[in-house]
Design a protein around this nucleic acid. Structure first.
Lengths: 133, 133
DNA sequence: ACAGTAATGAGATTCGTTATCAATAATACA
DNA sequence: TGTATTATTGATAACGAATCTCATTACTGT
């Protein structure tokens, strides 16, 4: 049976108080910095669990590490992510869902999944990068 | 200056004679199996180069490793990938391009990139998985 | 042919993640 | 409330993908 531990709750909270996607490693050091003696393996396990339960989204960063972010559970959505500061906006895209479905069945594919994420520079980071040039 | 070596050519050829996405590791062992004494590091370097030059597409597998595939250079496209056998179909999606653009600018994001891939079971694998059930 | 130097490759190294396993602590039940 | 059960934890080892090192090799222009 599943048990409630302060460790899981700590991970859930830390994840929730974050604007964008975070790696397990950085979440772990954040927790350690706030005095929590939580172990690294536990953070990995908690994040994997949250992702399975639908309380967190995960994606692969371009460097190959897994990033996590709290999300509103239950509803399918995609992300608009600032590649500079990590700020993330959840976006819905019914049109894209339908497109994925139809493209798959057009080619005889079944059980379609899809990975749809948009990366860019958020307004703030855009302003910082080119202040007056 | 850039030089032509049989190693680069071997990687290009091996990649081209493959239906779907392959990892650097498996491409390396394939080459080794055919008698080529090419080194692993070289395969990694050649694949990275091909990806930069636009002769290969790359994506992150769900397990976090980078997969590569030969592609028609120059044109932007996405992929429909069989998650069982790796068969890949290149798909164009102007509608999705435009959607990504507009969604980004709606939220003040600039320089939008996007990751759009559809995974599924190809017709053949669908038939194999559930033969008559 | 030859010099200059990009490319190679075996092995060491880095880094993210998972497995191990004894110790701990959350839950069910008497 | 006390106790037995067993899921969970965490320090560390192990693993695997990818990169780096650096001496050696071999393209290329002259």
């Amino acid at each position: 049976m599943k048990r409630n531990t302060w460790q899981r709750e700590a991970v859930r909270t830390a994840l929730g108080s974050n604007e964008g996607f975070v790696s397990a490693q950085s979440l772990h050091s954040t927790l350690r910095d706030t005095g929590s003696p939580i172990g690294l393996a536990t953070v990995y396990r908690a994040l994997a669990d949250l992702a399975v339960e639908g309380e967190a989204d995960s994606l692969q960063s371009l460097e190959g590490e897994s990033l996590y972010r709290a999300c509103t559970p239950g509803q399918h959505h995609h992300h608009l992510i600032c590649r500079n500061c990590g700020l993330t906006v959840e976006i819905e895209a019914d049109a894209v869902e339908l497109w994925a479905q139809s493209v798959a069945s057009e080619h005889g594919f079944t059980q379609p999944n899809h990975v749809v994420d948009v990366f860019g520079l958020c307004a703030e980071c855009t302003a910082q990068v080119r202040p007056g040039r």
